[in-house]
Structures are given as C-alpha cells and as structure tokens.
Simulated assay, not measured.
Amino acid sequence: MKALVLDFGGVLTNDFWEVLRGFARSEGLSENALVDLVTKDPEGAELLRSLERGGIGQAEFEREMSARLGVPADGLLARMAADLRPDDVMLSAVAEIRSAGVKVGILSNSWGSDHFDPYAPWNLAERADVVVISDQVRLRKPDPEIFDLVLDRLGVPAADCLFIDDIAAYLAPAKAKGMAVWHHTDSAATVAELRRVFLSTYPG
C-alpha cells in the first residue's frame, strides 16, 4: 500500500452522528430529529445531498432545513457543527504514517463553503497531500467518479490505496474500484489496522 484516503467527519473527528444529536439536544429537539431528517426523510436527505454536491448554497440549505426543524436559520450550519472535535488519536496516527512516506488523501462530503467553512480550523492542506471536498468538485460519495478523482490526484492506482470511512455504504464503490477498504467504528481498531497495513511496510 502506497496511499491512504480517509473521510473527515467521523473518522478524523468525533462521531459525526453524535455531533448531530448534540445539535438537536441543544436546540430543544428530540435527540434524533436531525439524524432522521437527513437519513430517513426523502426531502431532507435530498437537501443534504444537494448541499454536498454544490447544487444548492448554504443559505438555501439553512432556510429549508430550519423550516423543517422549526429552529432559526441564521447560523444553522455553524450550530450543527458546534460539537465537532478532533480525534487526536487518529490525527496522530495519520501524521505518523505520512511521515513514513505514505501519501495521504482526505475525501469529504461537504456542508458547503459559502459563509461557513467547517474545515477552516483543521489545516487539512498541511495534514494531507490531497484534499477533495465534494461541493468543490460537484461530486459526492458514493459517486464512483469521486474515487477516480482522488486516486488521480494522488497519482496512485486503486490497488495501492486503502480507503477508510465511517459510513459503510461509501466503502462499496471504493472497493469496486479496486481499493482496499476499512469501516471505521473505533479509533483504536482503525489505528491498529493502519499500523498493520502501513508501518510494517514503511517502518520509518
């Protein structure tokens, strides 16, 4: 393996769904109000997909989602991301692997970047060789083409790359491309897999 591609939210951060549940609690909503809206409600899910692909802007998304949730639109995305925290264990492991000579890519479905940039505090360009953000390329996981794009930018064949995501549905198209895949559910288990795959080959 010569390259590692990782999701951002839920892999390099704390649990993404818990972030959304934290937002709901802070807004006085039922705990799963936002999770259910973007996963089970067809219109809510399509709004999120459109935001991720850059089909709608952040302001439109905030207006539409606020109406469905019954909460203020102003600053909605920032409030949704308020509980997002770095997973220092994962970030340290990725930095170690990159310093050993492995190319690192970050592949993230975005919440847009009009007036709120959730990536700004993270210095992703310093942590990875390639950063692909969905709204900037008008593609989103699980679109097969977005995996072609990140592989092309990394300059490695699919067979030489491991892809990690916390959403299992996004692993299938990567695997179909020939990438190795890992479903992230626990930082300790993922770090152990990273060390097994990479640091046995690149001992540093």
Score class of each variant (00 low, 15 high):
8 F>W: 09
12 L>M: 15
14 N>E: 06
14 N>Q: 10
18 E>L: 15
19 V>P: 00
20 L>V: 10
24 A>I: 02
25 R>E: 00
26 S>L: 02
32 N>V: 09
34 L>H: 04
37 L>Q: 03
38 V>Q: 04
45 A>N: 08
45 A>Y: 06
46 E>Y: 11
53 R>D: 11
55 G>Q: 15
59 A>C: 12
61 F>R: 01
64 E>L: 04
65 M>H: 05
70 G>A: 01
71 V>I: 05
76 L>C: 09
78 A>T: 05
78 A>V: 07
80 M>Y: 01
81 A>F: 13
90 M>H: 07
91 L>Q: 12
92 S>A: 15
92 S>Q: 14
97 I>F: 12
98 R>N: 02
100 A>I: 09
100 A>K: 11
102 V>K: 04
104 V>F: 05
104 V>A: 11
105 G>H: 12
107 L>E: 00
113 S>D: 10
116 F>S: 07
116 F>I: 06
117 D>G: 06
119 Y>T: 02
124 L>A: 05
130 V>E: 14
131 V>S: 06
137 V>Q: 01
142 P>R: 10
144 P>W: 11
145 E>V: 07
147 F>R: 12
148 D>W: 13
148 D>T: 10
150 V>L: 00
151 L>S: 11
157 P>Q: 01
160 D>E: 15
161 C>Y: 06
162 L>Y: 00
164 I>F: 06
164 I>K: 04
166 D>A: 04
168 A>S: 13
169 A>R: 02
169 A>G: 09
170 Y>S: 07
170 Y>G: 00
176 A>V: 08
178 G>D: 11
179 M>L: 14
179 M>S: 07
181 V>W: 00
187 S>T: 05
188 A>E: 14
189 A>P: 05
190 T>G: 11
191 V>F: 00
191 V>M: 11
193 E>V: 08
194 L>A: 04
195 R>A: 09
195 R>G: 00
197 V>G: 04
197 V>P: 10
203 P>D: 05
204 G>L: 09
